[in-house]
Nucleic acid binder design. Structure first.
Length: 492
RNA sequence: GGCGACGUCGCCAAGUGGUAAGGCAAAGCUCUGCAAAAGCUUUAUUCAGCGGUUCAAAUCCGCUCGUCGCCUCCA
């Protein structure tokens, strides 16, 4: 039974979709005016996980993630660069798509753009004006928050307290200081659409209501986004949507926690943010995704070199074990094509048992509000058992084809949900090696020449020279790994 | 000022009533010519502090201390 933390009730609730077997979910994507940062990566990975797990659980999921492609920030950027606004929005839609692809995000069912739904937006605003929930003033249309009873029910506040905070700009044209724009009159030179209130464009918030209700209906199951969107964005979406439809807008509101940079809040104004692109120059995209999944999606997560390095070490450990297994499997496969031969010992028994319970434990973790951190711990548990068998098997030489194939299958099943560990292990390790090699001050052919020299030295029992070479390479950041089949090297 | 979250081993991080997962780091041993990897063993009688409820609390309640977030564009 899946339980989801619902911001609306501040509690975990059993998940019961509106229509049995089907889930409708909407996630606030991005306003496309700049490259995405690590915070966007987190939010999108978090809801990608939700999407994948719901599918894995057997639901038919309709997942909508929007692009807000008309907005003040886009217009500002376009003016600065001296280009039409859609040059900016299209540029950053493309950049977003590329970034998300690198993070291995599944493609949502629909990816609507605000500018393609202006007709629906206008209709929605008109409906609100007609019902008295909104009012027009000098070409702008505002939503009257006092007309909506449930206002602030998501962020659990009240209007008086909000005003006491007193960072609300006073605008004489507003009936109430907290009223927000549904439609903005176009200033000279700004892009506009014609409307019953004159030329203008949608305000922020209304596009999400229009697109989600059009694609998912007036009431749908899950709406997600970053914690910072609770107020005002989602609060306003509720107000607009429910005032218009008279029905509950969303059943489960989900919000992911922030990314901190070295324990400080990351924000554009502080200037301490990293774009996804910058991070991927230094870290593998799978390591970044693995790192993001290593904490629960609602907890704050601290982005630092230390923490990324830890995540990388952990992922390396998993892939190394899997790679060792695949190597044996490729040998066993020919010796034992039926895959029936087995040896029974303690390690094998333990791995068999862990394997049998893996999917159950995985689902139990994920059912508890998508606890990916716990799910990953279960994988590490399995890897430990696998390593035990691997160590054993190296001694006994017994074929374990069937067991290893089962491990491969179970891992792949989980990998499909987490969106990590999808790479062929040898491929991952090679990728990491080449990434790290590019930072080395020594050429690969030189390393290999030294390894060859060391091999002959060892053959001649010249261990002094052999150790000199090992030490020299270690200084260069190269670690040598001797094995019966020869010497491998890796970047430390 | 209002609202809210959090404080678990050196670091990261699960655990929301039944007696402390997992990862990283560290130490010893096995293996190795020496190493590395891997395995084994060890590393929190204790969950910021103090009280309370309970047969039983990291988990519930209260207070104190500390950190952080939202209230303005923000994932």
């Amino acid at each position: 039974m899946l339980r989801i933390y619902n911001t609306l009730s501040s509690a975990k609730e059993e998940f019961v979709p509106l229509i049995p077997g089907r889930v409708s979910m909407y996630v606030c994507g991005v306003t496309v005016y700049d490259n995405c940062h690590i915070g966007h990566a987190r939010a999108n990975v978090a809801f990608d996980l939700v999407f994948r797990y719901l599918r894995h659980s057997g639901y038919d999921v309709t997942y909508v993630r929007n692009y807000t492609d008309i907005d003040d920030k886009i217009i500002n950027r376009a003016n600065r660069d001296g280009v039409p606004f859609n040059v900016i929005s299209e540029r950053y839609i493309k950049a977003f798509d590329e970034d998300m692809a690198r993070l291995n995000l599944a493609i949502p069912t629909h990816q609507p753009k605000a500018t393609e739904y202006v007709e629906e937006i206008i209709a929605l605003v008109q409906k609100l004006v007609d019902s008295g929930a909104a009012y027009q003033t000098e070409g702008d249309v505002y939503f009257a928050v006092e007309k909506f009873d449930g206002y602030l029910k998501l962020s659990h506040r009240n209007l008086d307290d909000m005003l006491a905070g007193a960072r609300v700009d006073v605008d004489e044209r507003k009936h109430h200081p907290m009223d927000f724009a549904l439609w903005k009159a176009a200033k000279p030179g700004e892009p506009f659409w014609s409307s019953p209130w004159g030329n203008g464009r949608p305000g922020w918030h209304i596009e999400c209501s229009a697109m989600s209700m059009k694609l998912l209906g007036e009431t749908f199951d899950i709406h997600g986004g970053g914690k910072d969107l609770v107020f005002p964005h989602h609060e306003n979406e509720i107000a607009q949507s429910e005032a218009a439809s008279g029905k509950p807008f969303v059943r489960y509101w989900m919000h992911n926690g922030f990314v901190n940079i070295n324990s400080e809040k990351m924000s554009k104004s502080l200037g301490n943010f990293f774009t996804i692109r910058e991070i991927l120059e230094n870290y593998d995209s799978e390591v970044l995704r693995f790192f993001l999944l290593s904490a629960h999606y609602r907890s704050p997560i601290d982005f630092s070199d230390q923490n990324l390095a830890d995540a990388e070490a952990g992922l390396d450990r998993i892939y190394s074990a899997l790679s060792g297994m695949e190597e044996l499997l490729s040998k066993d496969g020919s010796a034992d094509p039926s895959g029936t031969a087995q040896v029974a010992n303690e390690a094998v028994a333990e791995l068999t048992e862990k394997l049998a319970g893996l999917q159950h434990r995985f689902c139990e973790a994920m059912d508890d509000d998508f606890n990916s951190a716990l799910a990953i711990a279960h994988i590490f548990d399995l890897i430990r058992s696998l390593n035990r068998v691997l160590a054993d098997r190296n001694a006994s030489g017994a074929p374990l084809t069937a067991l290893f194939r089962q491990v491969r299958y179970e891992i792949a099943t989980i990998a499909e949900v987490l969106g990590v560990l999808n790479t062929e292990p040898g491929g991952y390790l090679a990728r990491m090696k080449s990434r790290k090699s590019s930072t080395l001050k020594i050429a690969v052919h030189e390393i290999e020449a030294l390894i060859a020299e060391r091999a002959s030295a060892r053959k001649a029992k010249d261990f002094k020279r052999s150790d000199e070479i090992r030490a020299h390479l270690l200084e260069m950041g190269i670690e040598l790994l001797d094995s019966p089949s020869g010497t491998e090297w890796k970047v430390k």
